[in-house]
Design a protein around this nucleic acid. Structure first.
Lengths: 210, 210
DNA sequence: TAGAATTTGTAACAAATGTTACAAATCAGC
DNA sequence: GCTGATTTGTAACATTTGTTACAAATTCTA
């Protein structure tokens, strides 16, 4: 764990903080599709993502879903931070898109470290800023793009996160993430294929153009 | 200024911090429709809103706009905070919806206060959390609601912010905020009027049902 | 008060997205 | 192999949203 921690955070956190994290942090391995945070959870800590990819999804009362963004290694979940510090509920769901490794940091330390470590302050503020920007990008996408553009962007974003030009997924799953119907996705995927941008196979989509 | 500061922040900030804010903060009065922050600005400080209402708008490269949310008294602009601390550019535009009063806090103090005052840490974290939640609500609205629902919600939200059941606005302005066309707004407003929820006049919309 | 500018109403049509229904293809397990 | 479940393709149609065009109503200004 120390090794992975050093890998991604030695340029972010000072040595003393890394030591503390190693002491109090709880390492956890997530298998693919494992649920990390559910809607309404009260977080007792914050996850630091060491490896893998995590999908953050918003759900409303009626159970309708939409993908907000993905977390990559080095990221943390700002919404958990909110929930952990203020003891409130989390408004999102987090699911591992592939096998991932995290370190869980206990809520009690979060505020203490803000005082003690400038690098921690920077990290927290940066995380919030990154997340705000991510949310703005999501809003841009929803407000300004048509479904065909959103779909193509989704495929490219996911390929980047998964570090794979070939995605294992079904039309139905994509429809859930983009909050539309399977038929619409099938139609637009076929259109993208005709334009030569992707290649369709059962349970697999290859991205040909980036 | 001290009086207004005490009014809304005496239960938020400790006395020493209020003193410091009074010393270094710059008071400013904004007239209606005055531009406070523009797209791409580098913020040299953060505004605290003492009085009034400020509209936060997102704009993409093509000049297309959409309303993100409103700020009320007691609020601050998380996006400015981001920009001020990291010396980056601001991704939004802020415009006074009505005459407003703000205090501008210099960037230099922001980090210093994080160490010195627990109340400031709470305020900053809370502000980020409130903004993240506001963004999620905006995303819910865009992803899950039809235009007629969005329009009605917009009217009610704006009435609340302006503390007025009667809004001075045109169909075109609403269309800009919701990123649609004037004709669509006129059509849906007429529909809401027929349902007895609002009453239409030139340059004025009364909300009858809340 | 006449004429210009702004705001609103509405029709007719186009495009995008959503829905229902069903068939064909592929796969998993026996 | 056969059978049932899953996934994909596609047609036909409904609904929502966007566009163009133009007239009427209201306000502003000279």
């Amino acid at each position: 764990m120390r090794e992975k921690l050093e890998n991604y955070f030695s340029f972010v956190f000072e040595k003393e903080l890394l030591d503390e994290i190693e002491q109090v942090g709880v390492y956890k391995k997530l298998r693919e599709n494992e649920l990390l945070v559910d809607l309404g959870d009260k977080m007792k800590g914050v996850p630091l993502l060491l490896e893998g990819a995590i999908k953050i999804v918003r759900e409303d009362k009626k159970g309708e879903e939409i993908l907000l963004y993905f977390l990559e290694r080095g990221d943390t979940c700002a919404s958990s931070f909110a929930s952990a510090i203020s003891n409130g509920k989390c408004g999102i769901r987090a699911i591992a898109e592939k096998e991932s490794e995290i370190i869980f940091l206990p809520a009690a330390k979060l505020d203490e470290w803000l005082v003690k470590y400038k690098t921690w302050r920077n990290f927290v503020i940066d995380s919030y800023n990154i997340r705000l920007n991510e949310m703005m990008e999501t809003i841009d996408t929803l407000a300004f793009m048509r479904m065909d553009e959103r779909l193509y962007k989704y495929l490219k974003d996911k390929a980047q996160i998964m570090r794979e030009m070939s995605l294992n997924t079904t039309h139905q799953e994509i429809a859930y993430d983009l909050h539309t119907s399977r038929v619409v996705i099938s139609r637009l995927l076929k259109q993208l294929e005709n334009e030569g941008k992707i290649k369709l196979n059962r349970n697999r989509i290859e991205i040909l153009e980036f």
